[in-house]
Amino acid sequence: GIPATNLSRVAGLEKQLAIELKVKQGAENMIQTYSNGSTKDRKLLLTAQQMLQDSKTKIDIIRMQLRRALQ
Rank of each mutant, 00 (worst) to 15 (best):
R67L: 11
N36K: 09
I62A: 01
I62W: 01
K43A: 13
L52E: 01
V23D: 01
L46F: 06
T5I: 10
E20Y: 12
L21F: 06
Q16G: 01
D60E: 14
K22R: 10
A48T: 02
T57C: 14
R9I: 15
A69M: 08
T39L: 08
A4D: 11
Q53N: 04
I31G: 01
R67C: 14
K15W: 06
E28H: 07
N29G: 07
R68S: 11
E28W: 07
Q49N: 05
L66M: 03
S55R: 00
E20P: 00
Q65L: 14
D41C: 07
N6E: 11
S8V: 07
T57R: 14
I61Q: 10
A11F: 05
K58W: 02
G12E: 15
P3V: 07
I19N: 09
M64S: 09
M64P: 14
R68A: 13
E14R: 15
I59E: 01
I19D: 11
K43R: 08
L21S: 02
I61D: 06
L52I: 04
S35N: 10
I19C: 12
I2Y: 05
N29P: 00
T39M: 11
L7P: 14
I59K: 00
L13Q: 00
D41T: 04
P3K: 05
A27E: 01
A18Q: 14
M51R: 06
E14K: 15
L17Q: 00
D60I: 15
G26Q: 15
V23N: 15
Q53R: 14
L21M: 10
L45S: 01
G37I: 03
I2R: 09
A11I: 12
G1S: 12
T47C: 15
P3S: 05
R63S: 05
K22N: 07
A69P: 02
E14H: 09
Q50N: 07
P3Q: 08
K58C: 05
I62Q: 00
V10N: 03
I62T: 01
Q53G: 03
M51D: 05
K15S: 04
A48R: 01
M30Q: 04
M64N: 09
G26P: 00
Q49R: 09
I31Y: 02
L52C: 03
R42I: 10
A69F: 08
A4C: 15
P3Y: 04
R67H: 08
Q65S: 03
Q71D: 09
G12V: 15
T39E: 10
I62G: 00
R67F: 14
Y34K: 01
N6K: 07
I62S: 00
K24G: 01
M30T: 03
K58A: 06
E20R: 02
I31C: 05
L45N: 01
I2A: 10
Q53A: 11
K22G: 06
G26E: 14
G37D: 11
Q71L: 11
R42A: 13
A27K: 01
V10W: 02
I19Y: 07
K56T: 14
A48S: 02
A27P: 00
N36W: 06
A27M: 08
D60R: 14
G12I: 15
Q16D: 05
E28F: 05
S8T: 11
L13I: 02
G1A: 10
L46W: 07
L45R: 02
Q32K: 13
Q71W: 04
G37S: 08
T33G: 08
Q65K: 09
G1R: 09
D41P: 03
V10M: 03
R42E: 14
E20V: 05
L21P: 00
A4S: 11
L45K: 02
R9V: 15
Q65D: 04
K58H: 02
A48V: 03
L45E: 02
A18P: 00
K22Q: 08
M30N: 04
I59N: 00
I19P: 00
T47D: 11
